[in-house]
Every structure is written in structure tokens, then in C-alpha cells.
Design a protein around this nucleic acid. Structure first.
Lengths: 69, 69
DNA sequence: TAAATATGTAAAATGCACTTGACATGAAAT
DNA sequence: ATTTCATGTCAAGTGCATTTTACATATTTA
């Protein structure tokens, strides 16, 4: 699952720390989300979308994760 | 956080078991989501939205959870 | 060159999303 | 009356999202 978090953050010209503070999470969380270490919770995804004034589906790209074995 | 899962499921006239199978989760998961026992993960939320042909924000209502202490 | 800023890594701890399996209940159908 | 179907409860287990703290590195700035 790709995300546009880093892209949006840079457009808004803020640091990881600033974004973390705004969302009330740690800087580690932002780093891990941007680097694809894990996926955000639904609530955090919503907070991020709200912060950037867009929708969850705009930021989180759920492409073809149909691993149907 | 309120959700429209049960509402949508009933409109679609399917059982909890059928929805669980369609989403590839257990019936327990559907029960717990409908009864507000916990919140879906981002991926599951997306699957649910896809299944009902709508968006995450249409199904999951994030109302005023600004518990700023 | 040294200090500050931004990004990253590593590791241990906590809480919760989700599973599994077993059992309970009410309604509908036979 | 009893089988079936839909919904629910309970409890123990696994994995992962998030935190915390501490250290590393590159770039900018004084």
C-alpha cells in the first residue's frame, strides 16, 4: 500500500516532527508510515486526511492487494 | 466512531457470515465491528467500502473525536 | 569547526485488531 | 418439539500499530 504522506508533507513544507505534533503521534510513527514500515490505523488515517484537507482514499493507495492464493 | 456497516449489510440483505466470507474475515470480526467493540484496520475498512461500492468516509463516521485534554 | 536541524535505525513495551473455538438464544421452518 | 439459521457472548492467543528512548548521519548555519 503506497501513501502520499511524504509528498503532501513536503508540499506543505513541514517537517516530520511538525506533522507528528499536529497529529498527536510520535515522530517515529510518521517515519514508519512514510517508509512503509506499517500501515496507519483507521483513526490516524482519518486525522492525516483531515490535516491535509483531503480524503483517506486520496492519500492511501490500495492497489491490487488481492493476494488470493 | 459510528459505522454504517450493519445498515448497509441489511440493505444488501446478506448475513454477517456472508459478509465475513466476502471480506475474508471471521464472523466475530463483523459482529465486533457492528457492535462497536473495536475499529476496523485501514485495509479492512477499505475492503468494506469496496464491497459496498462506496468510500471509507461514507461508512465510518469520525465525529468530533477531538478529546483534547 | 562546532552547533543545530532533519531524517533515520534499533529494540523493548503496550494495546488493540483479528482469529479460533465453544457455547447460548431467539425466530423460523418442518 | 426439534432442527436450522442468524446473532451474540466469552476467553485465550497472535501479530501489528504506536510509543519511548537512545544513538547515527547528513546538511545547514554560526
Amino acid at each position: 500500500m503506497r501513501t502520499k504522506i511524504q509528498e503532501l508533507r513536503k508540499e506543505h513544507r513541514i517537517t516530520q516532527s511538525e506533522l507528528a505534533d499536529a497529529l498527536d503521534v510520535t515522530r517515529q510513527t510518521i517515519i514508519s508510515l512514510e517508509n512503509g514500515k506499517y500501515k496507519a490505523s483507521l483513526v490516524l488515517a482519518h486525522k492525516i486526511a483531515q490535516y491535509f484537507g483531503t480524503t483517506i482514499e486520496e492519500i492511501f493507495i490500495f492497489e491490487e492487494e488481492e493476494n488470493l492464493c
